[in-house]
Design a protein around this nucleic acid. Sequence first.
RNA 1: GUCCCCGUCGACUAGCGGCCUAGGUCGCCACCCUCUCAAGGUGGAAACGGCGGUUCAAAUCCGCUCGGGGAUGCCA
Length: 475
Amino acid sequence: MTQPHIQPRLRIAPSPTGQLHVGTARTALYNFLYARHLGGEFFMRIEDTDVTRSKREHADAFCEMLRWMGIDWDGDIIYQSDRFEMYTQAINSLLEKGLAYECFETPEELEAINAERKEKKLPPGYDGRARNLTQDQIQAYKNEGRPRTVRFITPDSGTSEFEDAIRGKVSVLWENVSDFVIERGDGTPTFFLANAIDDIDMDITHVVRGEDLIDSTHRVLALRRALGNAEQPFYAHTPMILAPDRSKLSKRHGAVSLESYRDAGYLPEAMVNYLVLLGWAPSNDREIVTLEEMISEFDIFNVNKSGAIFDVKKLEWMNGEYIRAMQTTSIVTRLKTMADARYGSSYDFERFERAVELAQPRATTFVAMLDQMDPLFAQDFSIGQEYVEALRSTDQAIEILDAVEKHLTDCDWTLVGIDLRDVVSEIGLKPRKALPAVYIAIEGSTSGLPLFDFIELIGRDEAIRRMRNAKLLLG
RNA sequence: GUCCCCGUCGACUAGCGGCCUAGGUCGCCACCCUCUCAAGGUGGAAACGGCGGUUCAAAUCCGCUCGGGGAUGCCA
């Protein structure tokens, strides 16, 4: 348990093998919030012991994404790949003390052992057969050129138990936990070992991590004791973030990385707000909360036990809430970079500002906002096939387009002047019946920016040109 | 197979034995507003997995059961 005289020290310990998974992002957020809530410190440790899969660029991207979320950390970033020497020393000392032993099985042999145990309905895993290898046998294996792994000896009987802030007492019978690898055949340490050592070395007092790690906690705890550290940190295992089918959220379910949401135009504030709600709720039925409010209210003991499905629809709604709450000028600033990338640098900036104003009240994401502006700025305006069909099957389409074109030719070029409601009513149609066709002609689809404003923005010549083009499509 | 964890509306959750004929939010439906689609407004449908206990009283506690998820890796 925590020592009262030590400041709380928490950490996020990602494995940099890909983009930042939303689950990891939420774990990082919970760690950060709880650390700040307790007035403690929050550290960043990159768990890159698997040298074949870990990439520095992923670690860098991870840090960048946390900053994007508004999360900062204390001290320097720790890379486990810089600390192999320390781990190797620890492994050797465990070996010397007889708390670990050398193994030489091939992957095929291990699989066979596992299959056999499964067959016999025994707990899965390694059977510990190399525990009592003689020096001669060990030498013989080495002479054969077999790679060596080191396994930690787990107890054969008894119970492992720890207190979890979210789940209460968690226990397992040791007979179900087999001896596990702490050093791989290539000499690198595994997660269990590096994780245990670093948490000790960094004086981590509170460990907040995903529920998928709950079983490994017993092994890490045993390792800590073997390493001479009897006291347990405070543990909290957070529920998983699930796909719509309640399975573990993975790439096959679509966008799972924070990068993809950032690139899709989601605001970090909305993302953070949405993520914090997956497993925790602020008081008084509030949903929209600032980071500061989260920090002051967040309590790990109030985190839910059960997994939460990631619901993009709600995220979209929340993002829209944040967009609508923003100053239009700051949206312009943030959106300009994306617009530059999309439209080059020659588009009309005043028109762009005006378009942002029109798009803001109806937007869910920045990308959706730009999509609505496409027919305004994109070089290659055209009407999609499905809308061409829709246009063709509109009653009196020709009549509508003719009347609108005629009106646009000589009306005042103001919002009031452009107003098409009287125009369509003169040919006996209600706006909701007639205007979709005009939307298609002008904006290329039936959903988009308000029509009259849009027409005013593109100007008389372009508006008339689009009306004529649309009529050509009708043949 | 073995072990661990979980179980309130379709989704996220509130609920810590009486404030519950179960509240909020997203989504859905209807209506209003309206220049299509949105946004906004109003209203609505919608849940305590099941069975047994404990108790004057159970969504809340206990047991069983069913269902779901996770771990079983020289990934973390």
